[in-house]
Design a protein around this nucleic acid. Structure first.
Length: 904
RNA sequence: GCCCGAAUGGCGAAACAGGUAGACGCAAGGGACUUAAAAUCCCUCACCUUCACAGGUAUCCCGGUUCGAUUCCGGGUUCGGGCACCA
C-alpha cells in the first residue's frame, strides 16, 4: 500500500467499487429488514453543512446495521415543491421547475462525493406527476370518506400585491415585497380532519418509546387534549335587540373551560373579534365595529397575536350566569382565538392570569372563589403525556405543586391574595354557594353535574389541535384535484383522470398564482355533468408531499397504485433522522398520514411510521463582518477569515474584521461553509469524521476549521500505522493462551473498544464517544512497542477491529485499509466484530476511597474481594487513615467495584 | 405570550442507573528530529495554595433532598427550537 494517505485517490476508488458492485441496491428478501431514513432535502441549490450532518448520521447507522447482517434500505429523494423556487423565479426569471431540476442534479453529485450509501434506484422527487398523482388519489379517497371539507379561513393578505403571504413573508406586520400593512382576509380552503385522529395521535405517542421525550411532549402539548365543560350563558333580557338569530344560535353563548370550579368567579365573557356575536354587535355599535376592524389589521401568526397588547371592547350585551342568575357582560378581546374551543371563554380574573390583566386594564371586578387553604384531597399533579399542556384558554396554570398555606386554618378558608397576580392553582372553593369547601376534583364534578341537570352545560373533551388547512394559493405545488361546477358544486376529479398535471413552464411574478391566469389549466369540463367548469387553482401545502414519501420509497416505480406489498415489508421506518425543527408539524402530519393510509386499506405495517427517531442539532458557525456603507454590515465568510491571537483578520488583506456571535449557517449572515470546498481540501472521510466526533448528534455543532485538521490528522495516523504494520508482511495467528500481562492489556483495550463502539453506535447513537474510544485504542497502539510475532498478531487484531468499527463513519479509508490488512472481500460487506468476553476480563479492580464524600485515595483489590476486605484495605490506606484518626465512623458505604465512603 | 430544550477548562466536549468532574480532540506552551521549514514524535495544560507530599475551590445563579448531586426536586437567568402558509 501507499505510505502516504491520499484522500482523493482513496475516495475515488472506494466510490468506483461501490458503484460497480451496485452495493446500495436494496432488495426485498427474507432477511431482517432495517429501514434507515433521513429527512429528504428541499433542493435549494447546494448542499449545506446541515445536510452533511443529517446524512452522515443516517449513513453511519445504515452501514452499521448492514454489517450487523440486516437487509438495509437507505433511500434518498427531493422534497421538490415549495416557495423558494417561486422566489428564485421572481428574482431571476427562471421557471421554478427548471430551477428545481437543476438544483437536484447538482445536489445529487454532491451527495455522491460524500460517499453516502443511498439506493438511488429508488430516487423520487415530489414535483413529478408519478409521485403526486397518488396524493391526489388519496385526497379523493378521503373526500369520499368525509375526512375532507371546505370552509372559510383566514390568510395574510397583501393589499398592494393582491396576494396571499406566507407567515415568513410577513415582516413586522408588513408584506416583505410591498411593505404594505398585512390584513386578515377570509377565503374558502380545503381542510383535512386531523381532529378525527386526535385521540389516536395522542394515545399512540405512548408507543413511541424510542423517540426523544421532548418530541413526544411537544406533540402531546400540541394536540392539547383537555377535559372540560361547555357552559351555556343565555342572552339577558334586552340584549337581543337587533341581533339576528344567526349571531347566537339557540339564544345561548357557549364557552369552553377546563376550570368549571371557578364558575362562580365569572365577571365577564370574552369572545374573539371574529365571533358571530362580536360581528353582530359591530353592526349597531361603531366602537365595536372599530375594534373588529382593528383586529383585522394583523397577520395570522399565533406568536404575533399572542404578544400583542391585550385589548378589548364591551359589546353592550349581557348574558345570564346559569348557576347564579346574575347578568354578565360580554366583551370582545384580541387574545381569544376563534379557532380554539367555541371562540368564547368565561373570564375569571381572580384565577386566570390573562383575565386578571385584562380586568385590571379595564377596571372589571375580580371575585375570589378558590382558596389557597389546602383541602383534604391534594390537587392533581400535571401528568405529562397523560394530560399534558394547559390546553384551554382558561387553564393558565394547572397546579404542579401544593399551594402555599394561607393564613387561615381549617374549614374557614381564607381568600387568596390576588393583589399582584391571579391565583391560578387548584384549591378549595369559597363564595360558591352550595359548592363551598369542595376541592378541585369534587367541585369540577359537582358543578358539571349541576350544569348538566339544568341542561346548561355538558362535559366535553377538547383539543388544541385544529384541522389541517391544506390549500395554498401558490403555483409550485401539487394541484388539488377538484373542479367547481355551477350546477354540481365542488366535484373531485375522477380517478381515471388523475393526475391533474401542473404545467411546468409558468413563472410567478409575486402577485397571484400564475395558474389563476392560465386558462388552459383552469378551463375544464365538469366530470359530473360535462358542462364548462373551473378547475381548482390552489395547490397542496408541501407538508402533504413529505407526509408519505417514506412509504413510497418502498415502491417508487409503482404506477398502478399508491403503495404495494413492498411497503408492508419495509414499514415502519426503523430509524428516522432529521432536524428538531420538525418535531411537531412534519412528524405529526406523517403520523396522521400513516394512519390515513392504513385506514383506506393501503399495505403499511403497524400504526406508526417511524420506530426510532433521532433529531440532530443545527450546524452553527461564527459570524464576521465589517461595517459597510449606510450602517449596513458586510458579512464575511468564516472560510476567508484567519483567527489569530489578537483577533480575526481577512485572509485576503490581513486587516482585522469584527467578530459577531455564533449562528445557524445561513445566507444572510454569510457564515455557511461550502462542504464541497472542504471535501476537496481534506477529503470526505475527514468531513464525516469531524461531523460525528465534534458534538453528540442531538446538540448543535460548531464549525471549526481546526477541528477538520484534527480529524484529517487522525486518519493520516491510522493510515501510517496500518502501512507500517503491513510492510512487515502477514501477521501470524494469535495465541491467546500465552500472552504476557502487557499483551493482555492491549488485547483488553481492543475488545473494550469493540464493545464500546458497538454500544455507542448501535444503542446510544453517541458517535462522538465511539470515535473517542477508537482514538484511545490508536494511542494505546502507538505506545505499544512490542515487536515479537505475537505482538504483530495483536496489532493485526487491533487494527482490523479499528478499521471495521470506523467503516460506517469513514467508509472510504476503511475500504482501502481493510484490503491492505489482507482481508478477503470489501469491508462494507464485513461482519461487525464481536468483543471477546475472555479478553475483557481483568483480575484487579480499583476502588475510590472517600471520607465524607471527599476523594482521599484509591486502592486496587483483586476481583471478587469481600466488602470487609475492601473496607479493611481502605482504612489501612495511609492517606485515608489520616482523615479518620480520632473520629468515629458513623457509616461505611461500599459501592461494589467502584467506591468506598466513610461518614465520620 | 405559550410549548420544548440547553448551559461543564482558553475552545468542542466526556461522565450511560445518584458514586473519581474534565475521557477524547482543538488551541496554547516547552522539547526532540531537521541546515531550515513543514510533517511527525514526546512532555505540560481547570483555578488557587505548596519545593514537594498534599490541601482548598470549581459543572449558569439561589435554595432543597442525600453519606455523596453535572445528574433528582423547587425557584430564577441567559441562549436556542417550535407556534399551524419557510421547509
Amino acid at each position: 500500500m501507499n505510505e502516504q494517505y491520499s484522500p482523493a485517490e482513496v475516495e475515488r476508488s472506494a466510490q468506483a467499487f461501490w458503484q460497480q458492485h451496485d452495493s446500495y441496491r436494496a432488495r426485498e428478501d427474507g432477511r431482517d429488514k432495517f429501514y434507515c431514513l433521513s429527512m429528504f432535502p428541499y433542493p435549494s441549490g447546494r448542499l449545506h453543512m446541515g445536510h452533511v450532518r443529517n446524512y452522515t448520521i443516517s449513513d453511519v447507522i445504515a452501514r452499521y446495521q448492514r454489517m450487523r447482517g440486516k437487509n438495509v434500505l437507505h433511500p434518498m429523494g427531493f422534497d421538490a415543491f415549495g416557495l423558494p423556487a417561486e422566489n428564485a423565479a421572481i428574482k431571476s426569471g427562471v421557471a421554478p421547475a427548471e430551477w428545481t431540476y437543476s438544483n437536484m442534479s447538482y445536489m445529487k453529485r454532491q451527495l455522491d462525493a460524500l460517499g453516502f450509501g443511498f439506493d438511488w434506484s429508488r430516487e423520487l422527487a415530489t414535483c413529478r406527476p408519478e409521485y403526486y398523482r397518488w396524493e391526489q388519489w388519496l385526497f379523493v379517497q378521503l373526500l369520499k370518506k368525509g375526512l375532507v371539507y371546505r370552509k372559510n379561513s383566514v390568510v395574510n393578505w397583501d393589499p398592494v400585491d393582491h396576494t396571499v403571504l406566507a407567515n415568513e413573508q410577513v415582516i413586522d406586520g408588513r408584506g416583505w415585497r410591498s411593505g404594505a400593512l398585512v390584513e386578515q382576509r377570509e377565503i374558502p380552503q380545503w381542510f383535512l380532519k386531523i381532529t378525527d385522529y386526535a385521540d389516536q395521535l395522542h394515545d399512540d405517542l405512548a408507543t413511541l418509546t424510542e423517540w426523544p421525550e421532548a418530541v413526544r411532549t411537544m406533540q402531546a402539548n400540541w394536540i392539547g387534549r383537555s377535559e372540560g365543560v361547555e357552559i351555556d350563558f343565555a342572552l339577558a333580557d334586552g340584549s337581543g335587540e337587533k341581533l339576528t338569530p344567526a349571531a347566537l344560535p339557540g339564544g345561548k353563548l357557549t364557552v369552553y373551560t377546563t376550570r368549571p370550579d371557578t364558575v362562580f368567579g365569572v365577571s365577564f365573557i370574552s369572545v374573539a373579534a371574529q365571533h358571530p356575536l362580536a360581528l353582530a354587535a359591530a353592526q349597531r355599535d361603531t366602537q365595536v365595529a372599530a375594534f373588529v376592524e382593528e383586529a383585522k389589521q394583523s397577520g395570522v401568526a399565533e406568536a404575533a397575536l399572542a404578544t400583542q397588547e391585550k385589548k378589548g371592547v364591551a359589546l353592550g350585551i349581557d348574558v345570564i350566569h346559569p348557576l347564579t342568575g346574575e347578568r354578565v357582560p360580554v366583551w370582545a378581546a384580541n387574545f381569544v382565538l376563534m379557532g380554539y374551543g367555541t371562540g368564547a371563554v368565561m373570564a375569571v380574573p381572580a384565577h386566570d392570569q390573562r383575565d386578571w390583566e385584562f380586568a385590571s386594564a379595564y377596571g372589571l371586578p375580580k371575585k375570589i372563589v378558590v382558596s389557597a387553604t389546602p383541602s383534604l384531597t391534594p390537587p392533581r399533579k400535571g401528568e405529562g403525556l397523560q394530560d399534558a399542556g394547559a390546553a384551554g384558554l382558561q387553564d393558565a396554570g394547572a397546579a404542579s405543586s401544593p399551594p402555599p398555606c394561607g393564613e387561615g386554618s381549617g374549614e374557614g378558608a381564607a381568600p387568596s391574595d390576588i393583589s399582584q397576580a391571579a391565583f391560578t392553582e387548584h384549591g378549595t372553593l369559597i363564595n360558591s354557594g352550595v359548592f363551598n369547601d369542595l376541592a378541585f376534583e369534587a367541585a369540577f364534578n359537582a358543578i358539571a353535574d349541576a350544569l348538566e341537570q339544568k341542561s346548561a352545560g355538558r362535559r366535553r373533551k377538547n383539543f388544541r389541535l385544529r384541522d389541517w388547512g391544506v390549500s395554498r394559493q401558490r403555483y409550485w405545488g401539487c394541484p388539488i384535484p377538484v373542479v367547481y361546477c355551477k350546477s354540481c358544486g365542488a366535484v373531485p376529479v375522477p380517478e381515471d383522470q388523475l393526475p391533474v398535471v401542473l404545467p411546468e413552464h409558468l413563472k410567478p411574478d409575486g402577485a397571484a398564482s400564475p395558474l389563476t391566469k392560465e386558462a388552459s389549466f383552469y378551463e375544464c369540463a365538469c366530470p359530473s355533468c360535462g358542462e364548462p367548469a373551473r378547475r381548482e387553482t390552489d395547490t397542496f401545502d408541501t407538508f402533504f408531499e413529505s407526509s408519505w414519501y417514506y412509504a413510497r420509497f418502498a415502491c417508487p416505480d409503482l404506477d398502478t397504485a399508491m403503495l404495494d406489498e413492498r411497503a408492508r415489508y419495509w414499514s415502519p421506518v426503523d430509524q428516522y433522522v432529521g432536524g428538531i425543527e420538525h418535531a411537531v408539524l412534519h412528524l405529526l402530519y406523517a403520523r396522521f398520514f400513516h394512519k390515513l393510509m392504513r385506514d383506506v386499506g393501503l399495505p403499511v405495517a403497524g400504526d406508526e411510521p417511524f420506530k426510532r427517531l433521532l433529531c440532530q442539532g443545527m450546524v452553527v458557525a461564527g459570524t464576521y463582518f465589517r461595517d459597510g456603507q449606510n450602517g449596513k454590515k458586510d458579512w464575511i465568510n468564516p472560510a476567508d477569515v484567519e483567527l489569530t491571537a489578537e483577533g480575526a483578520v481577512l485572509r485576503a488583506d490581513g486587516q482585522p474584521v469584527q467578530v459577531g456571535g455564533r449562528e445557524k449557517m445561513s445566507k444572510s449572515k454569510n457564515n455557511g461553509v461550502d462542504p464541497e470546498i472542504i471535501i476537496r481540501s481534506h477529503g470526505a472521510d475527514a468531513v464525516r469524521l469531524f461531523m460525528m466526533f465534534t458534538a453528540p448528534p442531538d446538540q448543535s455543532l460548531e464549525w471549526n476549521e481546526a477541528g477538520i485538521d484534527g480529524a484529517a490528522r487522525f486518519l493520516k495516523r491510522l493510515w501510517r500505522m496500518v502501512s507500517e504494520h503491513t510492510a512487515q508482511g502477514a501477521a501470524p495467528a494469535l495465541q491467546v493462551q500465552s500472552l504476557s500481562a502487557t499483551q493482555k492489556d492491549l488485547r483488553r483495550k481492543t475488545h473494550q473498544t469493540i464493545a464500546k463502539f458497538g454500544d455507542d453506535v448501535g444503542r446510544r447513537l453517541q458517535f462522538n464517544t465511539a470515535i473517542a474510544a477508537a482514538m484511545e485504542l490508536v494511542n494505546a497502539l502507538q505506545k505499544f512497542d512490542g515487536s515479537t510475532e505475537q505482538d504483530r498478531a495483536l496489532r493485526q487484531e487491533a487494527l482490523s477491529a479499528l478499521v471495521a468499527c470506523l467503516a460506517p463513519i469513514t467508509p472510504h479509508i476503511a475500504h482501502s485499509l481493510w484490503t491492505a490488512l489482507g482481508h478477503a472481500g470489501a469491508v462494507i460487506d464485513a461482519t461487525w466484530p464481536e468483543a471477546d468476553a475472555a479478553a475483557l476480563a481483568s483480575d484487579a479492580v480499583k476502588f475510590v476511597v472517600q471520607v465524607n464524600g471527599k476523594l482521599r485515595s484509591s486502592i486496587e483489590m483483586p476481583v471478587g474481594s469481600s466488602n470487609e476486605a475492601v473496607l479493611a484495605a481502605a482504612k489501612a490506606d495511609e492517606n485515608v487513615a489520616k482523615f479518620l484518626v480520632g473520629l468515629a465512623i458513623k457509616k461505611e458505604i461500599v459501592v461494589p467495584g467502584k467506591l468506598v465512603n466513610f461518614v465520620v
